[in-house]
Design a protein around this nucleic acid. Structure first.
Lengths: 361, 361
DNA sequence: GGACAACGCTAAATCCATTTAGCAAATCGG
DNA sequence: CCGATTTGCTAAATGGATTTAGCGTTGTCC
């Protein structure tokens, strides 16, 4: 074969209607060759001594028909897709929504088209989506909030695609997580201070402070429990295992757990450390049934942030994970990616609301 | 040219390291041709009389090297990218988060890889992102919450890509929106009934019910104002323009507006219709400063839903837009897309929480 | 035994953009 | 006026998967 581009004879291919226009169309209509068109559109034409007048002619024709490059073809040729992938459990809280938006901004800044897909925490979906993204040749992949990211890391490695774990760490890729332990210790310390200031809290050496939510054995939960216990011990209290309720993340079980706790104690504890916004949602479902007075001198902390939770009828201290810093770090890891290096960094969370809107990108 | 696939002589191309594996690799390693491999991997091999044993051999080799099809190449050949695009303002509320997740589930069900990109309501970003998605050959595009979608619709039309507007309608593509007018009338009626039941509300023929938030001239706002007024009139009250505060969507201005209103009235009105969750966020910033008693026999409604807002220290009636139905309808429009038809459908919103988790996909 | 079908597979064109090697014409130097 | 250079552009290969047309071999049937 090798007839190159379309010759005279079928000039009017445009009557095929909705076919997308290509550089061949532009070449025919301007009486030039596809190479010329490609060079002009890529801005490399000066280097190949295409004349100013030809360049203008081509550019004009391209604009006239609203030409847009076919990234499929370009990507195939250049082995660069221009796609940046990220998977995450869902978008239904500020942490994930913020990660998503920061990622998109960062990807766009770097000239990629962001591709975020949610997987509803289903391992099978996670795997399928990663395979899909890889087959679309994403140039790197951020894996957010996956309990066991190693199989996904391996998939990426097999495809030669850099990846970074975010929120939950994994052994087979660089990981960026919140400083769960430090943050939990900080929040716990703050609650203990508040309790102490009101003169309450110490019953027979143990602090009247409970930990609610999370999954036993899960990285983030155990880190936070450790920070919690560390702070409790640091304040001179003994640590009681019975004060720690790893009841999962679902609002329903958190609600039930907090209700039972309330029943057992005959009222609210002096302090409550809630491990996530979803557990918090469950807790306040129960709180709703209590008198406002039940919260006098009671202090609640939450390792997550939501604008509405800040306006509840009792004081809540919220920890906001530093979404922007996490994403920035993830990009750094991605840029210096080597298959053999799997560092892990812990980003300190911050108190209070502060904006979740990412940098403009 | 035309040497087809790699001949003897460079069998060991695999020493090039990280190159992704192709059907040519499989063909060489199994002693077959790329065509055969392609047919086997696509499941069309029986139709072309490939023997069972060859098929097994090829399949085995593919699995062994972890072969994944290159969607770039396939897409180029088939003029089908397998990509489904959606743009939306952001993910920071349940409405958008829900749309996003429903879309992803629907796209996956239909065999597409979803590609959701947020544009922060910046028209320039919207345009850029749409161009990008089109150049990646998305097979259709959902455009969510864009004030003036027509230029984007035109871009899609030029590319021969079907698109559907969601949340805010546009003249140049099918549109799926909430029944803003009907929903607003429903919510307004409910507030008026509650007010009437407490015996309050009627001051010199006008209802003591205010409308807060939204942008003058914007489609959704004006529809909701119309529904609001319709219901007020329907209850036998005269409609007062001074009760309608289109103060935008930002929490800050909503807060200020509601504060001024409170000052002017010397207290809370009997009813308050809040036009969006962000305006609501601003309003409760102010409410926080009031005594709980200020809300006795006061009724608040919000044309949006958030799980936390439901647990505030005063009753709020929330309208939840029917995200799943909207996305379903959008897929229907997409499937029966014709460039000349631009229908619009209004999906009734619903009271109360109900889940935002989309169908499993 | 010769025509024909069935079988099992492959060659080659195609999708579109990129890029290197190189061709023909114009210009220049001497 | 001839060889050398510059100018302005094009041919053709490339990337990976798909798909139609068709090739060689074996088996069947009259």
């Amino acid at each position: 074969m090798g007839e190159g581009y379309r010759e005279e004879g079928d000039q009017m291919a445009s009557d095929r209607g909705q076919r997308k226009s290509t550089i061949y169309d532009i070449a025919t209509s301007t009486g030039t060759s596809p190479s010329t068109v490609s060079m002009v559109l890529n801005g490399t034409w000066r280097r190949y001594r295409i004349s100013e007048s030809t360049a203008e002619r081509v550019l004009g024709a391209a604009r006239a028909i609203g030409y847009a490059v076919n990234m499929k073809a370009r990507g195939l040729r250049l082995a660069r897709s221009g796609l940046a992938g990220m998977i995450m459990p869902h978008y239904r809280n500020r942490f994930f929504a913020g990660l998503s938006e920061s990622f998109e901004a960062g990807a766009r800044e770097r000239g990629f088209c962001p591709m975020v897909v949610s997987t509803q925490r289903r391992p099978e979906t996670e795997r399928e989506v990663v395979e899909r993204l890889l087959s679309h040749q994403v140039e790197f992949l951020f894996i957010v909030g996956v309990a066991r990211p190693e199989p996904l890391n391996d998939l990426c490695r097999a495809a030669g695609t850099p990846c970074v774990n975010i929120d939950l760490p994994g052994a087979n890729a660089p990981s960026v997580v919140s400083d769960n332990r430090g943050g939990a210790a900080m929040l716990t310390g703050l609650l203990l201070d508040k309790i102490a200031a009101t003169g309450g809290g110490a019953g027979s050496g143990g602090a009247d402070l409970h930990f609610l939510g999370g999954v036993a054995g899960e990285y983030a939960t155990e880190e936070r429990v450790a920070g919690f216990q560390e702070a409790v011990a640091g304040h001179g209290f003994t640590v009681s295992k019975t004060h720690i309720h790893r009841c999962g993340y679902s609002p329903a079980t958190a609600r039930q757990t907090v209700e039972e706790m309330h029943h057992r104690l005959g009222g609210m504890p002096a302090g409550l450390f809630v491990n996530s916004i979803t557990a918090f949602e469950g807790a306040i479902q129960f709180f709703k049934s209590l008198e406002p007075d039940a919260f006098r001198d009671r202090f609640i902390g939450c390792f997550d942030w939501d604008p509405f939770a800040a306006f509840l009828p009792f004081p809540v201290t919220m920890l906001r994970q530093n979404v922007e810093a996490m994403i920035d770090q993830a990009f750094v890891y991605m840029e210096e990616y080597r298959v053999d290096a799997c560092p892990m960094v812990k980003i300190p969370p911050q108190f209070g609301p502060s904006g979740t809107v990412p940098r403009h990108g």
